[in-house]
């Protein structure tokens, strides 16, 4: 088990959080969504990244706020933690 540093509350046990899945999924507009590929992609397609993964976490048994994380999915190392609307400092690296 690991600990996560909530940007509002500080370091807490994993069990206080819930995982919100991949970050930066952009919901298609109703017009775009008419094309089933775009809608299916938004609903189901995931990068499932082996390496640096951008994802959302929710501090459910704490401040009940959402934040973003860049985590290495092989080592479970939290490389960056940032607020919604912010850009991760590792963005370029993660895109590779």
């Amino acid at each position: 088990m690991f600990q996560i540093e909530c940007p509002y509350c500080g370091k807490r046990e994993l069990t206080e959080y819930s995982y919100g899945g991949e970050a930066n999924l952009i919901r298609p507009t109703p017009v775009e969504a008419e094309e089933s590929q775009a809608w299916a992609g938004y609903l189901f397609s995931r990068t499932n990244k082996r390496g640096l993964h951008l994802e959302r976490w929710f501090h459910v048994f704490g401040c009940r706020k959402w934040f973003n994380v860049a985590r290495n999915t092989i080592t479970n190392e939290f490389v960056d933690i940032y607020l919604p609307g912010e850009k991760p400092q590792v963005d370029e690296q993660a895109k590779k």
Binding site: M1, F2, E13, L14, E55, I74, T75, N76
Partner: peptide, 13 residues
């Protein structure tokens, strides 16, 4: 475990 991982390790919880 609820999160994506390739660590070959599960959470203690």
């Amino acid at each position: 475990d609820p999160y994506v991982a390739y660590s070959n390790q599960g959470g203690f919880d």
